[in-house]
Design a binder for these strands. Structure first.
Lengths: 219, 219
DNA sequence: ACGCAAGCGGATAAATTTATCCGCTTAGTG
DNA sequence: CACTAAGCGGATAAATTTATCCGCTTGCGT
């Protein structure tokens, strides 16, 4: 067993590492697409070598960025479990998770390139799975949701809300709330269709259609 | 005004054009991502020049492929309007549209690269808009759906079902039906949560998480 | 069956992306 | 302070992608 007791990075190296991650993050958010490691280096004001030394390729950088975020995401699930009422707990989680998804501009890019089977991510995925299973089991047992509601529905919900978020970021930042509500009603988690958020206008929807300009935003 | 009366292509050229389009389609479907024009040429067994002569760049090819498909999509909307019952008409359209989305493996790739503002596509988009507006107005007037239901909700529905479809193509080809139903219930378009399609298993959901292998499928 | 506009193929140029190597600099220990 | 392991930068090589050009071939109207 090789003792991979890797000592901490030198202060300047750690500083650069952070700078590279923050720059990548900003770049991903600004353009809605990944940037090359060379671009990130230029933008961060460090040499390419410095980037490649720390992140062998784009995948490594993306996975690192995602690992950091995933920690927050896990915390949300843990926090939701605090609720005494199982229905509230699940509702709360679904709303917080969607909000997290909506509040992070770089996240869709990162998700599109992450590798959940890669090392520390796989463990976090499994831990998340346990939290979600718990939330779902309790809510179903309490009759707070359709009796056939399953963990898979939570992930599907996130995929669906994510799809709306990705297309409405810049157009109607709160549009996702309407569909989060619709889904919860559909899942029997909420009774009244209260329509807290109204539908997008035709002009707004128009902007969500596929177009190259929607893919390379600021310049 | 230049009379761009472009005479039909020579028979062999037309044949090649079709071959290129079909090959691109197949490649997109197989790999879940766009291929380069040179790859398409090689796979189709024609010279690169032949491809570039007909399609100046990838965008042109994608837009052409999408235009063809969009015709089908418009026909669905027109057919749905036949229903005497406005609720049935809308329900029927939502289901048919989702099914169309689910039944075409190359479609998500094409959608991700299409340019709806480009010429004949813009006109088709507007025509679709008129059909959808009609379906929605009639359904709302008849009280078959939530009174605040809007055209934007139809597009959002498609984005959401599309998100599920894209991740479950190869894993559970019918999974989207469950969420189409959930959304319809949430929109007040259907009363009973009948759960015709059950949720995916944990193992299936696992396969929908982001991973590079999910992006380059067969090899 | 002739003639030629239209079409074809694919070598190759240009641009972009990806990644390495190595001489110079510096943080941090003693 | 001095020494050295760790880190830095960026020129440049390798791989990939994108696109053009032009000599040869062929469909098809007469």
């Amino acid at each position: 067993m090789t003792p991979d007791k890797q000592r901490p990075l030198r202060a300047d190296a750690e500083r650069n590492r952070r700078l590279i991650m923050d720059t990548a993050d900003r770049l991903f958010a600004e353009r809605g697409a990944v940037a090359t490691l060379n671009e990130i280096a230029r933008e961060a004001g460090v040499g390419v070598g410095t980037v490649y030394r720390r992140f062998p390729d784009l995948q490594a950088l993306v996975d690192t960025l995602f690992t950091e975020r995933f920690t927050t995401f896990l915390a949300l699930a843990a926090a939701a479990e605090e609720h005494a009422d199982p229905g509230q707990a699940l509702r709360h989680y679904l709303l917080e998770a969607a909000q997290w998804r909506a509040g992070d501009r770089a996240l869709d890019v990162i998700l599109a390139h992450a590798d959940l089977d890669a090392r520390p991510l796989a463990g976090m995925r499994d831990e998340l799975g346990r939290h979600v299973d718990g939330l779902v089991e309790r809510a179903v047992a309490a009759g707070a949701v359709r009796e056939d509601f399953a963990s898979a529905d939570v992930y599907a919900y996130l995929y669906m809300v994510g799809a709306v978020v990705d297309r409405t970021h810049d157009i109607a930042p709160d549009a996702w709330r309407r569909y989060a509500e619709v889904l919860m009603v559909g899942f029997g988690l909420e009774q009244a269709p209260t329509a807290r958020t109204s539908a997008m206008t035709d002009a707004q929807i128009r902007l969500t259609w596929p177009s190259p300009s929607a893919r390379l935003p600021a310049d």
